[in-house]
């Protein structure tokens, strides 16, 4: 460790090094705990300088960020990092070390279960759910593997399904769909080898335009069908489909 490298903590924390210098200094940091600690403190200091310049971003920025985040895959954690740190932090028997890990895993599982339960119980606000649906629609439409499959000819209106295997979801899009007959509603179905399952009711907006996220997961090997059903929908289709989209096509 040269004395010269040692003085670079400030320039490093303020990002005032060239790329070459930065990489060299990062190698030094791995081997020099004193510098690493000083960098930690100086970065916490520059963070304060940064926060002192605060100014609110324009409100619409969040929508763009959220839309992009939803189609961005998250990096997995570095496996074993937590365990290494636990080992460095505490000394204990092998069994003693294993217990906190199990507890952490159990806690993580509990959190996951609780979040899913909260979602299913509808504890999230209606607006949140509407937002979430809009986001999922955007995420499917923007997915890199999004596929647009047109309805088989002879159906009603112009219907397509956009499906993303990666997102595991599909969106039903129609144009020029006539309103459903009085006291009736359109219902979507996802049909696989074991038969049809309900995938949501369709509300027809002006000029017969529909963009509807299909309920539940879709793999891309199914057919999507739309039938006319009683108000409120049915558990099984009771009429011939007016639209059929074969996702395998």
């Amino acid at each position: 460790m040269s004395a010269d490298l040692h003085t670079l903590t400030g320039a490093y924390a303020a990002h005032a090094l060239s790329d070459t210098e930065r990489l060299a200094f990062e190698r030094h940091l791995d081997a020099c705990p004193a510098c690493a600690q000083e960098v930690r403190e100086l970065e916490a200091t520059t963070a304060r300088l940064g926060a002192a310049a605060d100014s609110p971003p324009p409100p619409e920025l969040w929508d763009r960020i959220r839309a992009e985040a939803l189609v961005t895959r998250q990096l997995p954690p570095v496996v074993g990092r937590g365990e290494r740190r636990r080992r460095a932090g505490r000394r204990g028997t092998a069994a003693g070390r294993r217990v906190p890990l199990l507890l952490a895993a159990a806690a993580a599982l509990l959190v996951a279960v609780l979040s899913v339960t909260a979602l299913n119980l509808g504890l999230l606000g209606r607006a949140d759910r509407a937002d979430r649906t809009a986001d999922l629609v955007a995420a499917v439409l923007a997915a890199p593997d999004a596929r647009r499959v047109a309805a088989q000819p002879g159906g009603t209106g112009q219907a397509t399904v956009v499906v993303s295997r990666q997102r595991g979801r599909a969106v039903f899009v129609a144009d020029g769909l006539p309103p459903a007959p009085a006291d009736r509603t359109y219902e979507l179905w996802v049909v696989n080898r074991s038969g049809p399952r309900p995938a949501g009711l369709v509300e027809v907006a002006g000029e017969g335009r529909v963009t509807r996220l299909l309920d539940g997961p879709v793999t891309g090997n199914e057919q999507v069908a739309m039938t006319v059903e009683r108000q409120g929908g049915a558990a099984r289709p009771t009429s011939e489909p007016v639209v059929v989209v074969d996702l395998k096509a």
């Binding site: 903590t9 400030g10 100086l42 200091t45």
Partner: peptide
């Protein structure tokens, strides 16, 4: 480089 370091240390 040294002013950056001792400046930030003093701020810290």
């Amino acid at each position: 480089k040294t002013r950056l370091r001792d400046g930030l240390i003093r701020l810290r």
